Amino acid sequence: MLAKELRRKSKEGVFQPTDETITVGKPASIGELITNFILGFVLGYKILGLFFMKNSLSVNPQEYIFSSQGNWVAGIVLGIFFAALKWKEKDKQKLAKPETRVIRVWPHDRVGEITMIALIFGLVGAKIFDTFENWDSFLKDPSSIFSASGLTFYGGLICAGIALWWFARKHKINFFHFVDVLGVIMMLAYALGRIGCQVSGDGDWGIYNAAFKTTSNGGVFPATQADFQAAVTANADFFSRHELHHAFVPKPGFLSFLPYWFFAYDFPHNVNETGVKLANCSDLQYCNHLPVPVFPTSLYEIIMCLILFGILWMIRKRIKIPGLLFGIYLVLNGIERFMIERIRVNVKMHFLGIEMTQAQLISFGIIFAGIAMIIFAKTNHKNIQPTSR
């Protein structure tokens, strides 16, 4: 989608290519061989190493990837293989006398670079912000900063945004047109990312919905306040370690066609292994579910963000002022996140006497930034160059 939109903008004359000088016909350099060896070694050591481990089916993939475990032989063999492939590729292209050529590179040719920068700085930023959001937990276990769990979207958005601004500036890509493209794509990416949260049960869920109850084998059914209190009493050990934020929201009559799990879900077999053991599960891992179902906020965000993506996608060609579409994205994103935080489980903080989550506080900032962007774009668009010339 990113390449498609960048290509469309290029055809409209918004983006221009940059010239880069490359040398062809040279044999593989020591640096290229070492880089390919390292890549092959890491893949062999970790990925192939997993298959050579005893009891590999019982290994926790997240813990394994972030651990020092692996297979040295598999790593070295695959590293040599990758280095040999690079040497052979360069040997086929080798010329008696290497030539210097100038090539034209368009923004849509750089999608791989853009994706990697967004990935690396997005993950780093998401982890840093999650650490600050859960500072007390971090102080108790500083090693959690290396854990694969716990990622804050806004941290990734801010850090990746700064890195991509630098990238656009370096390659003379008009930043305002560039972020207009990114805003639409990020709304889609966020919706798709929440699918992973929903199906894995990674803890990104809402507060308890006391209008529903679970069975020992999993599954959700309507309940009364008395049922809720009984579940809390029966699972006193679990609730002594978890906050009991809840609401009583039965299924509305006009939405009777929707399943119960749309309003409350117990996240059976969740990857966090949070809750109590399922009666019919004999596996060694992932046998837990929540004793009281919660609002599946990740499911709500999938739906809301897909709708918002559809709106942005429909209006993207009509908006000609650079930066305006990104401002609209920021406002919609901030409003969506602020609303969902009202029923999400998250650490509360006090700001100017108001209790809110870090995400809600940042949402306010994102909304105001979006409004400022819209005003700036409308009042200064004549001064913003339409191309990267």
Rank of each mutant, 00 (worst) to 15 (best):
V184H: 02
G218D: 08
G44L: 05
I321Y: 09
C197A: 08
T131L: 15
V294S: 08
P291K: 07
C305V: 00
F263C: 05
R110Q: 15
N288R: 11
F228L: 00
Y64H: 01
A211C: 03
N346L: 07
Q360A: 01
A223H: 07
G40L: 08
G75S: 12
A28R: 13
M339F: 06
D204K: 06
I328N: 04
E5T: 06
P386H: 08
L361A: 09
F238K: 00
H108I: 07
I374P: 02
F338D: 04
N217P: 11
F239W: 07
F51L: 11
T131I: 14
K97V: 15
K127L: 06
I158T: 06
K94Y: 12
L330H: 03
A377T: 04
T233G: 13
V102F: 03
Y265P: 08
L324E: 04
C281A: 13
F263P: 01
A369K: 01
S10V: 10
S58E: 13
H108M: 07
F239A: 02
N55S: 05
P386A: 10
M349K: 05
V294R: 11
E89Y: 15
N380S: 05
Y208G: 01
R110M: 15
V77K: 13
I362A: 02
A148L: 10
K92Y: 15
V331F: 04
A74H: 06
